[in-house]
Amino acid sequence: MITLIGKKLAKEGESFIFYEPAEECSTCRFKASCIDSLEEGHKYTITEVRDVEQKCPIHEDEKVQVVVVEKGETTILTDSKGVFEGSSFEFNRQGCSNKDCDFRDMCFPEEIGKGEKCVYIKDLGKFNDCPRGNSLIKCVVKIYDK
């Protein structure tokens, strides 16, 4: 999918999470090609930087660059049983009240919502360092494209 991103941020292989559009975006003539195809809270990876720039008042140097993005991959910890590389599953966050855990970001990744469908990209093996003793799998996933 094609979108626009600040010129200084437009680097192949870079990832970003789209949180929400700026207020100024609602009346911008590039809104359809810039933000309308992005889903709030999702991670994207830039796969191609095109040689086209546009003016944009909200970005540094007031310029954006055309880029091609795809949904980004995320490393998570999950207890999903019966999943294997290439399969899809519904992501369910772990029941954990330990707010100070060093691994919390992998059990509660901000870019994947509860119940979102993910594709299991790569198995990174069993994860035995959970402070609560949960049996977890470390894996790389990508949100399923709708």
Results as ranks from 00 to 15, higher is better:
L136I: 03
Y120C: 15
I46V: 15
L9G: 01
I35R: 01
P109G: 11
C25R: 03
C118V: 15
V119M: 14
T47C: 09
V67Y: 06
R93I: 02
R50I: 07
D100L: 10
E85N: 07
F127E: 07
G82L: 04
G72P: 07
E70L: 13
S26H: 07
E48Y: 03
V69L: 12
R104P: 00
P57N: 10
C28G: 03
Y19H: 04
T47M: 05
G6P: 14
K71Y: 15
Q54Y: 15
R29V: 12
I121V: 15
E48W: 00
D105V: 05
I137C: 00
V49S: 10
C28S: 03
I112H: 08
K11C: 08
P21L: 12
F91Y: 15
A22L: 15
E73A: 07
D79H: 03
S80D: 04
L136T: 02
N128R: 02
D129H: 08
K146C: 02
G115C: 06
E73P: 05
A10W: 05
V66M: 11
S88V: 10
R50Y: 11
F84P: 00
V68A: 07
V141D: 07
V83P: 00
G125L: 09
V140T: 13
K114F: 11
L38R: 02
K63P: 00
R93D: 04
K114Q: 15
G41R: 03
E116C: 04
D36C: 10
E62K: 11
S87V: 00
S80W: 02
S135G: 10
Y44Q: 01
F84I: 01
P109I: 14
P109Y: 12
E116W: 09
F30L: 15
D61Q: 03
C96W: 02
S80L: 13
K55G: 15
T78F: 01
K71L: 15
E24Y: 10
S26I: 09
E90L: 14
T3K: 09
E14G: 01
F127H: 03
Q65K: 11
K138H: 00
R132C: 04
E53C: 09
Y44I: 10
R50F: 14
V66R: 06
S26V: 08
N128H: 02
F84D: 14
I112T: 07
C25T: 05
K71P: 12
G113C: 07
V141L: 03
N98P: 00
V83C: 10
A22F: 15
Q65H: 00
G95F: 13
G113P: 01
N128G: 06
E40G: 14
